[in-house]
């Protein structure tokens, strides 16, 4: 494992901690898209089917479990916690995420490394992760004002993707057999989706003003 990959994982972990902190500290999930969170929970459940079949390292196993547990806990909290769920911006979170699900699954059936149950679900999770942030970005754009913790949550998620790209570039040059084209191309698409958000995040940071996205 290289430093970029590790930094990426830590950014990912930080983004989840920031989100949990926001929900627990403010007892509110306003500005957070339940649809994106549901998609992420599904991404981890579909991808980590290999928990039962392949052992990579203790680090990998623990991180996989942390991602599965934290993402399902967030979804559970937004749906079931009687205080938190009242702050959910349901009327703004209207992105039709079932289309993303169907498209990702269809693509996974067509483009995968092997036509097996596990490989199809792995490819599905990669495609779904690439687009899972869309309902969240649309929700932020609709609500206009973005609170600090929500902005930081999306920022850390974007940073995680950026570090993974550096990781792939590093691996491409240092490893002889590194070819994970499905993950790399989907990763590039996913990171590109954050470009707009990063631009406005940078502007607000530079001017020291509240993050505001144009309608």
């Amino acid at each position: 494992m290289n430093i970029f990959r590790f930094a990426g994982d830590m950014m990912h972990l930080t983004s989840i901690l920031v989100l949990l902190l926001k929900i627990y500290a403010t007892k509110s999930c306003s500005g957070i898209s339940l649809k994106t969170q549901e998609l992420y929970a599904l991404v981890f459940l579909a991808r980590y089917l290999d928990l039962f079949t392949d052992f990579i390292s203790v680090y990998n196993t623990i991180m996989k479990l942390v991602f599965i547990v934290s993402s399902t806990a967030i979804v559970w909290c937004m749906k079931r916690d009687r205080v938190v769920r009242r702050s959910y911006d349901k009327q703004l979170d209207t992105f039709r995420h079932y289309f993303l699900l169907a498209a990702s699954f269809a693509l996974a059936l067509l483009v995968n490394e092997k036509f097996t149950f596990q490989e199809i679900f792995w490819a599905f999770s990669i495609y779904l992760e690439a687009v899972a942030i869309l309902p969240q970005l649309v929700l932020l754009q609709r609500s206009g004002n973005v609170d600090n913790l929500t902005g930081q949550y999306v920022f850390f998620l974007g940073a995680y993707r950026a570090f993974y790209i550096l990781n792939w570039i590093y691996r491409y040059f240092t490893e002889t057999h590194f070819s994970r084209w499905i993950a790399c191309i989907s990763g590039l698409v996913q990171t590109a989706l954050y470009a707009d958000f990063f631009y406005y995040y940078y502007i607000s940071w530079k001017n020291n003003t509240k993050l505001k996205l144009p309608a």
Partner: peptide
């Protein structure tokens, strides 16, 4: 034969 490398990333 096409061998798929282990998936070591998260």
């Amino acid at each position: 034969c096409f061998e798929v490398p282990p998936k070591d990333e998260l």
